[in-house]
C-alpha cells in the first residue's frame, strides 16, 4: 500500500523587502494511511507553517518549494481551486484557538452548514440537518440549540468539539490537529484528547498531531518529527525518538518536557486502562 502523504525537501520562505527569509527548510516525512505523526518543537520552530504549506494555506507573501505528494497528487503544484476542494474534504485542520476560529458574526450552524453545502453539494436545510447530526455524533446535548448560537456564546471546549465534529463528518483521509488542546483547561483537554484517540482508533483517518504535550503525543502517535528553528532535526518511530533521541536538541526538548510527567502519567494510566478494557471486551466477544 502506498503512502498517504509524502513530503520531500519542503522549504518555506517569506518574501521581504530585503529578499527572501527562510522560515522552514528541509522537512521530509512519510505518513502511511491510518498512521499518526507527531510534530514537536519549540514555539516558532515552524510547525504550523509546515502544515499550512502542505494545505496551500500560506498567503501570497510566502514561497513554498519541495514536494508534497498526497494520494498520488502533487499538492504544491495543484491549482488553487482543486486545492481548496481538497481542504476540509480530504485534508482537514483542527485549529489551536477554537474561540477565534469561527466568524464572530455568524451562528455556528451557518458556518458548519456552508462547509457541508460546498463539499456535499446539498441544500441549506439538508446541510443544517447534517450539522445537527455532526454535533449529536460528538455527544453534544441539544445540538439544535447550539447551532443557533454565536461563537462567543460557547466555551472553548465546546467550540473545539464543534470543530472536530465538523471535521469528522466529511471523513477526511488526513486530519491535521495543530495544538488542539493548548488553549483549553486540563479537564477539557482530556475530553478533546479522548476524541482524538477515537479518530485514531477508527483507523480510517491519518493524523498529524502538533503539540508541546509529550504525554498526549505518546498516547497518539506512531512516528515523530522534531523541529528546531525551522529545520527538521529528528524523524523516526515515536518510541525511538522519545526514548533515545539522537540530536542534542531533541534530547533537550524531550527531557524538559518529561519534567511534566505527572500529566503524562495520568494520561498513560487512562490509556493503559482503556487498552485493558478493550482487550477484555475483545476476549469476551
Amino acid at each position: 500500500m502506498s503512502a498517504l502523504l509524502t513530503v520531500r525537501g519542503l522549504d518555506v520562505a517569506l518574501k521581504t523587502k530585503k529578499g527572501a527569509r527562510t522560515l522552514v527548510s528541509g522537512v521530509d516525512f512519510t505518513l502511511e494511511p491510518g498512521g499518526a505523526m507527531g510534530i514537536l518543537g519549540e514555539s516558532g520552530s515552524g510547525k504550523s507553517l509546515t502544515c499550512r504549506a502542505v494545505m496551500g494555506l500560506l498567503g501570497e507573501g510566502f514561497t513554498v518549494s519541495g514536494r508534497a505528494e498526497f494520494q498520488d497528487r502533487e499538492l504544491l503544484s495543484l491549482p488553487p481551486k482543486a486545492m481548496r476542494a481538497l481542504c476540509g474534504r480530504e485534508i482537514a485542520m483542527i485549529m489551536q484557538h477554537p474561540l477565534t476560529s469561527f466568524d464572530p458574526l455568524c451562528v455556528i450552524g451557518d458556518q458548519m452548514a456552508e462547509t457541508f453545502r460546498f463539499h456535499l453539494e446539498t441544500s441549506r436545510e439538508a446541510a443544517w440537518e447534517i450539522a445537527r447530526d455532526a454535533l449529536a455524533a460528538m455527544r453534544i446535548a441539544d445540538p439544535g440549540h447550539i447551532l443557533t448560537l454565536y461563537p462567543h456564546q460557547l466555551s472553548g471546549g465546546m467550540l473545539q468539539r464543534v470543530m472536530i465534529g465538523l471535521t469528522l463528518t466529511l471523513r477526511p483521509a488526513l486530519v491535521i490537529a495543530d495544538e488542539p488542546t493548548t488553549a483549553l483547561d486540563s479537564v477539557t483537554q482530556f475530553e478533546i484528547m479522548k476524541e482524538l484517540v477515537r479518530i485514531r482508533e477508527s483507523g480510517r483517518t491519518s493524523l498529524i498531531f502538533i503539540s508541546h504535550d509529550l504525554g498526549a503525543m505518546r498516547m497518539l502517535v506512531d512516528t515523530a518529527l522534531v523541529m528546531h528553528q525551522g529545520r527538521q532535526v529528528e524523524y523516526g518511530p515515536a518510541q525511538a525518538v522519545f526514548n533515545r533521541p539522537q540530536s542534542d536538541h531533541a534530547r533537550y526538548l524531550i527531557e524538559t518536557r518529561n519534567a511534566l510527567t505527572s500529566r503524562f502519567l495520568a494520561y498513560a494510566g487512562r490509556r493503559a486502562g482503556l487498552d485493558r478494557e478493550r482487550g477484555c471486551c475483545r476476549a469476551a466477544g
Binding site: M55, R84, F118
Partner: peptide, 16 residues
C-alpha cells in the same frame, strides 16, 4: 484573523 484561515482550511470557496 484565525477564523479566515479556518474558513480556508474548511475548503470554503474564496467568495464565501
Amino acid at each position: 484573523e484565525p477564523f479566515v484561515l479556518y474558513a480556508r482550511a474548511r475548503g470554503l470557496p474564496e467568495a464565501a
